[in-house]
């Protein structure tokens, strides 16, 4: 009797240990603010995207261009330089800005970079393999009017177990013909981290 009680107690203890050590994963809302390390995270990226999207959509450059040319401006996204102290991928918020411009029908975006190379490679492939009526021709791409470029900078001030981190994301829209900057947007984020 005594032995069986001890065995059951051991089993219960073992089970509790196993369940307490097992990994637990839960799905949370993508806009939920969860800060773990104090580094750049999805919340910062989302805040940057929201702010910069609203700034670029409300800028006067769109109305000026439409008035002058009578059509929507065409934008190409170029390089974003991360000059901060952390690894930051700008694509997470740049895509949101592109999406906002396309969905609001304010501007047109043309493909650039490696994806454009892929498109051209496919077009080249079509020249030999597609039916004549469906072949897409070279030399008919839409040329961009503006180029979107950006910089990410940061300033760190740390003392003992406290740290203040300041991020500044600057995006610039420049006219490809005249090199004139028609819009500059920024998002500033300041964090106080206490370890």
């Amino acid at each position: 009797m005594k032995k069986s009680i001890i065995a059951i107690a051991f089993c219960v203890l073992g089970m509790s240990l196993v369940t307490s050590c097992s990994r637990k994963v839960t799905r949370v809302a993508t806009d939920a603010q969860i800060d773990l390390s104090g580094r750049w995270n999805d919340t910062d990226s989302r805040l940057a995207a929201e702010e910069l999207s609203s700034q670029i959509l409300s800028g006067n450059w769109i109305t000026d261009f439409v008035q002058e040319k009578g059509k929507k401006p065409v934008i190409i996204v170029c390089l974003v330089r991360n000059k901060s102290h952390e690894h930051i991928e700008s694509e997470t918020f740049i895509k949101d800005i592109e999406k906002a411009l396309i969905s609001k029908q304010k501007a047109r975006i043309v493909q650039g970079g490696k994806m454009r190379e892929e498109l051209r490679a496919e077009r080249a492939d079509q020249q030999n393999n597609s039916s004549v009526s469906t072949v897409k021709k070279f030399g008919l791409e839409t040329g961009a009017d503006y180029m979107l470029q950006g910089n990410i900078n940061s300033i760190v001030d740390a003392h003992k177990k406290q740290k203040v981190v300041y991020y500044q994301i600057d995006l610039e829209l420049t006219h490809l013909q005249t090199n004139e900057k028609v819009w500059i947007g920024d998002k500033k984020i300041k964090k106080f981290v206490k370890n």
Partner: peptide, 21 residues
Amino acid sequence: EYSVLQGTTLQETYKAIDPLE
């Protein structure tokens, strides 16, 4: 030079002064 890098992030990070890190 540049056309392949379009739409990407160039990582030019620096090492911040952070004793705890």
